[in-house]
């Protein structure tokens, strides 16, 4: 199975929200594949991991779900980001960028100091 990374806890909901926000409504299987693709196949996503995250987001009101028909004419449940979810995504994105920026400074090669 190669050396694909497991998804870090906590970052998964951010990835889900971002994927739903840029690519529109998705079903669970598609979502998993998109996330794997976006990661450049560096991540491997198990439903056992994805499912609870989806459920939590839905309970928090960040996404909504409804049954629909997939491209291959299969019945599937589609997830869609809500207004609350967008705000959450915005806030979390900012936080994440700040954090990575700070960390980057620490980890940068020590030339200027």
């Amino acid at each position: 199975m190669g050396t694909k990374n497991d998804v870090w806890l906590g970052t998964l909901s951010l990835m889900v929200l971002r994927t739903l926000s840029t690519m529109g409504p998705q079903h669970g299987y598609g979502l998993a594949r998109r996330i794997e693709q976006t990661s450049g196949d560096k991540l491997q996503l198990n439903y056992g991991t994805l499912y609870p995250a989806l459920l939590k987001l839905e309970q928090d009101g960040a996404i909504r779900s409804e049954w629909g028909i997939s491209d291959n004419n299969r019945r599937a449940k589609f997830y869609k980001i809500t207004q609350v979810g967008r705000k959450h995504l915005e806030r979390e994105t900012r936080n994440w960028q700040e954090t990575t920026a700070i960390l980057a400074r620490f980890l940068a090669p020590a030339e200027e100091v």
């Binding site: 079903h27 669970g28 299987y29 598609g30 439903y47 299969r74 599937a76 449940k77």
Partner: peptide, 13 residues
């Protein structure tokens, strides 16, 4: 159960 079934089916496809 329905949802998992549909997932499984998509994967198999």
């Amino acid at each position: 159960g329905d949802e998992l079934d549909s997932l499984l089916q998509m994967h198999i496809d």
